[in-house]
Design a protein around this nucleic acid. Structure first.
Lengths: 232, 232
DNA sequence: CGTGCCATTGACCATTATCAAACGACGTGG
DNA sequence: CCACGTCGTTTGATAATGGTCAATGGCACG
């Protein structure tokens, strides 16, 4: 593993509190892999062999049933994933697919569980990580149940715009079809919803989104920190 | 606190591994309260003062936004709740209301965090609890996104029937309106969906549900352990 | 310079929500 | 003991939301 990659892992909140020796054990057991766009890294229902850390790229988590497919979340680096499955040693509940070419650090599940047993710093960080993940999904469930699809879109644009720095313009981080699935809608509906948001001052040019009138978009979106604030 | 109540708490997976001395600290700091039906115990957005343990009764967790209200989950005793909020010391993401008169053990959040810091057994149990909770919500999100409302109902009836012992008849554990909200539908729709399930051999008499033909209901429901199995 | 995929648009359909009304169980007060 | 009101449930009619199907245009890539 390149020093560069292990540094990224070390800097994650999940690993920052691990004792150096234990961290080295984990890194020594792990390795790095690079996957092209569209690779399915993990399959719903299988058993977790590795804790994964996304170092670069983008990964979508999705689940299938009844000939339908739903994106549960999209992960941006750096971040660990499938921690819960590794901890409880239960089957993956979601599949994962790269949305762009991605590099992933793989740490054997057994090593993770061992270090978890003897390193209280790691245990604490695991708790914090899981608690945050849990809260994130609760927010997502609220998002789905309490808002229409255009409202979800409007709020997604708002948070995206605010994360992309002051100017009201940003580039979609992935294809519109991926965004549609992430927001629980069809691509056709996303198109229509984007067109509808012109009334709220949002203009679209290919992958570029421009928030022309933030106040108007906020009025339409009715953002709620208990749904949209990733830090709360 | 009655010995009876503290025993129930002690037997929970979350507390079973806590060192006896630490457990006594928690219990000494806590107290029991009984609430009538319909009491709102906690309010979305407020700060967590206590870790709660439901000892008897039933509690619905719900969130409000845009004049809408959505039930996120319904808890049956014995179980701890709002653990994640206590751990990260963040605002409640959901409100909680008793569906029947309920007794709850309240343990001050500070005491929980203190014991959490020095008791590795508790830390480990917390991790397990959070990981399971996380996975439960992921399943719920899949349930909402991958199934129609009648499918959700059919699968709910299936698991309920299997948990209520061999005979295919059971009593709804709460009002139909609460069930409707739990399943993400309106009471009117629940009525219609129940009527529709007659084709799958389900008969309804007030609060009594009878699964006349399990095979037929299974064929309709298409149950999926990665959504419906609470243990996986 | 095709070929394929994504995005968009329009027409139509399915699902679910909303509104309204009526029924029945239940409890209260005359 | 009965009249009445309340509330949960059911049923019907209608509207809104989102999904499906089909056709088209644009763009990248071979």
């Amino acid at each position: 593993m390149r020093r560069e990659d292990s540094e990224i892992v070390r800097e994650l909140p999940l690993f920052r509190g691990v004792e150096l020796e234990n961290f080295r054990t984990l890194i020594a057991a792990g390795y790095v892999q690079r996957f092209p766009t569209g690779t399915v890294l993990i399959h719903e229902g299988e058993r977790p062999d590795f804790l994964h850390v996304l170092v670069d790229g983008q990964i979508a988590f999705f689940a299938s049933h009844n000939d339908r497919e739903a994106t549960v979340s999209i992960l941006t680096p750096p971040a660990a994933f499938i921690l819960a499955a590794v901890i409880v040693d239960g089957p993956y509940l979601k599949s994962a697919r790269t949305l762009s070419s991605s590099t992933v650090v793989l740490i054997p599940a057994g090593a993770v569980r061992e270090v978890f047993e003897r390193d209280t710093g790691f245990a604490r960080a695991t708790v914090a990580e899981l608690a945050c993940r849990y809260r994130t999904i609760v927010k997502e469930l609220k998002n789905v149940r309490l808002r229409s699809s255009s409202e979800r879109l409007a709020n997604w644009i708002l948070t995206q715009a605010s994360q992309s720095g002051g100017c009201g313009t940003f580039r979609l981080p992935f294809e519109k079809r991926a965004l549609a699935s992430r927001l629980g809608m069809r691509p056709e509906n996303l198109s229509r919803a984007l067109a509808e948001l012109a009334e709220a001052g949002v203009t679209v040019d290919g992958p570029m989104i421009r928030v022309g009138d933030a106040a108007k978009l906020i009025a339409f979106s009715k953002p709620n920190p208990l749904i949209d604030d990733p830090t709360s």
